[in-house]
Amino acid sequence: MIRKITLYLASAVLLLSMASCGANDSIEQAAAQSVEQFEAMGMQGMKNDALFIAEATSANMLQVQLSELALEKAVSPEVKEMAQEMGQGHRRLMDDLQSTAVQGEFVVPTELGSAHQKVYDDVSGQTGIGFDLAYIKRIREEHDRLLNRYEDMAENAKVMEVKQFASKQLPLLRQHLQKVEALEDRLGSI
């Protein structure tokens, strides 16, 4: 009981201090809140795990939002099919991520981080085949980053549930990256 009260008080203080600092990146805010909570519980060295959970949440929200956008705006049936697959895969991944976050008592962002928002804005500003090419290029770049980060966390996460989550998602991320690269090669010859 005292642990929960301390946790809630630490969270409230952190939220108030962040609100007074202005608009920070949602990923950084969530990670900082998680670290603050863990430190209040006497757990040190949780920054990398907290940052990963926040980054992964924002990255997966981006993938879902981009897939929804591509289903509306893409002109190529292949791109729409890819968007459908990406959306489904990242929704399932997000469900696992949310479960891991709740179990590990991590704070997650509720909106895209600033870098992910910029990616969304850049892609959403495109039309026609330019949209299709921008969408595929960006999801390839993002999956490349995701795969590297998940591989690192599968090896180096401090919390076992985070390690297990990252390891479990690697096959899906590898599959997505291969498919996106193949489609990018086909579309690049247009």
Rank of each mutant, 00 (worst) to 15 (best):
N48L: 07
Q98Y: 05
L173N: 00
E81L: 04
T100H: 01
I2G: 10
I5M: 12
M94G: 05
M41S: 07
P77C: 10
K179Q: 14
Q103T: 13
Q169A: 15
D185E: 15
V102W: 04
K118Y: 09
A115I: 08
A83F: 10
G188L: 14
K163W: 00
P109V: 00
F52R: 01
V79K: 09
L71T: 09
V159H: 08
A101L: 04
I139E: 07
S189A: 15
H90M: 12
A115Q: 11
F165Y: 14
S167V: 00
G113F: 04
V35G: 01
F131N: 09
A70F: 08
S167Y: 02
N24H: 05
M1D: 10
D49W: 01
V159D: 07
N60L: 07
L9F: 07
Y120M: 13
M82Q: 14
L14E: 01
M86S: 09
M153W: 06
M94H: 07
R92G: 09
N24F: 03
L147Q: 03
L9Y: 08
A19D: 11
G104Y: 03
G42N: 11
D121G: 01
L177G: 01
S76P: 00
I2V: 15
M82V: 04
R140K: 14
D185A: 14
D152R: 13
G104E: 09
V162H: 00
P171H: 03
S34Y: 04
L15Q: 10
V108N: 04
